[in-house]
Simulated scan of single mutants.
Amino acid sequence: MGWEYGIRATNPAILPGVVKRLADSLTFSEMYRLEYYEDGFVLLQEGSSWPEALQVSIEVASEMDEVVAGELYIYCLFHIGGEFAADWLRQLKTATNRDDGALEWFEF
Rank of each mutant, 00 (worst) to 15 (best):
M1C: 06
M1Y: 09
M1N: 11
G2N: 13
W3I: 09
W3V: 14
W3D: 13
E4P: 07
Y5T: 00
Y5E: 10
G6W: 02
I7V: 06
R8S: 07
R8K: 11
A9P: 10
N11Y: 10
N11Q: 10
N11S: 13
P12G: 04
P12E: 13
I14M: 12
I14S: 03
L15A: 00
L15E: 01
P16K: 01
G17R: 05
G17E: 09
G17W: 00
G17A: 04
G17C: 04
V18P: 00
V18W: 02
V19E: 03
V19I: 07
K20R: 08
K20W: 03
K20N: 01
K20L: 09
R21Q: 12
L22N: 03
A23D: 05
D24A: 15
S25E: 08
S25N: 04
T27E: 08
F28C: 01
S29E: 12
E30R: 15
M31N: 10
M31C: 10
R33A: 06
L34M: 08
E35R: 12
E35N: 12
E35P: 00
Y36G: 00
Y37T: 09
E38N: 09
E38L: 14
D39V: 00
D39Q: 11
G40F: 01
G40K: 01
L43V: 04
L43P: 05
L43T: 00
Q45G: 02
Q45P: 06
Q45V: 06
Q45Y: 03
G47A: 04
G47F: 01
G47P: 00
S48F: 09
W50K: 13
W50T: 13
P51L: 09
E52F: 00
E52S: 10
E52V: 15
A53Q: 15
L54V: 06
L54H: 07
Q55I: 02
V56Y: 07
V56A: 02
S57R: 01
S57H: 05
I58F: 04
I58S: 10
E59Y: 12
E59P: 03
E59N: 08
V60N: 07
A61W: 05
A61F: 14
A61H: 04
S62M: 12
M64E: 13
M64K: 15
E66I: 07
V67Q: 01
V67Y: 12
V67L: 05
A69Q: 13
A69I: 03
G70M: 10
E71S: 10
L72F: 14
L72Y: 14
I74L: 13
I74D: 01
I74C: 09
Y75P: 05
C76I: 15
L77D: 12
L77V: 01
L77H: 15
F78E: 00
H79Y: 14
I80G: 02
I80Q: 02
G81V: 15
G82D: 08
E83I: 11
F84W: 06
A85W: 01
W88I: 04
W88L: 14
L89C: 05
L89R: 06
R90A: 14
R90E: 15
Q91G: 04
L92M: 14
L92N: 07
L92H: 03
K93Q: 10
T94F: 11
T94P: 00
A95Y: 08
N97V: 02
N97D: 14
R98G: 13
R98M: 03
D99H: 14
G101Y: 05
L103M: 07
L103T: 04
E104S: 11
E104W: 04
W105E: 09
W105C: 02
W105R: 05
F106D: 05
F106M: 04
